[in-house]
């Protein structure tokens, strides 16, 4: 499963599609497996579903299980574990994807530039809100 650049700039007119769910669940699974492979002591199991179609309905149990996996990865990396954002509004889903990005930046060695803007061209920031400068990671 490959890392896919998260989407973090939704607005109130945004909709959640099965493609979004493939990316979010796939990224969290990527982080889980990456962390495990690189010696982080991650508790619990991987995300249970990473392939979504239009025929799926996101369940409460799945969503909080998935955000729980991200929380475990973050805890293993020494980050705040609380990322249980709901799936029902745009700012929460933005936040969740932003935290997958922060976690990715924390545990991997990202390229020096090129991914410092998200795919909509918006400058990425650190978890504390500072702009990420090329080369400092």
């Amino acid at each position: 499963m490959a890392w896919v650049t998260p989407v973090t700039n939704r607005n109130a007119t945004a909709r959640m599609t099965y493609l979004d769910m493939n990316r979010i669940s796939g990224n969290i699974s990527y982080l889980y497996n990456y962390a495990k492979d690189h010696g982080y002591d991650v508790q619990g199991d991987d995300v249970s579903q990473t392939t979504w179609t239009q025929n799926d309905i996101i369940s409460y149990d799945f969503w909080y299980s998935m955000t729980g996996v991200l929380g475990e990865v973050r805890e293993a990396a020494g980050l705040d574990k609380s990322v249980n954002y709901p799936a029902t509004n745009y700012y929460s889903v933005n936040s969740l994807e932003r935290y997958t990005l922060y976690t990715w930046m924390e545990i991997t060695e990202p390229p020096e530039y090129g991914l410092l803007q998200n795919r909509e061209g918006i400058q990425l920031q650190t978890e504390s809100g500072a702009d990420i400068e090329a080369g400092i990671l």
Binding site: T13, A14, R15, M16, I57, T88, V93
Partner: peptide, 17 residues
Amino acid sequence: TDLQGDGYPLNGSCKLY
């Protein structure tokens, strides 16, 4: 939170099943 069609609106109106 139904992914049918073009998905569900992220305006807080939908609930997790």
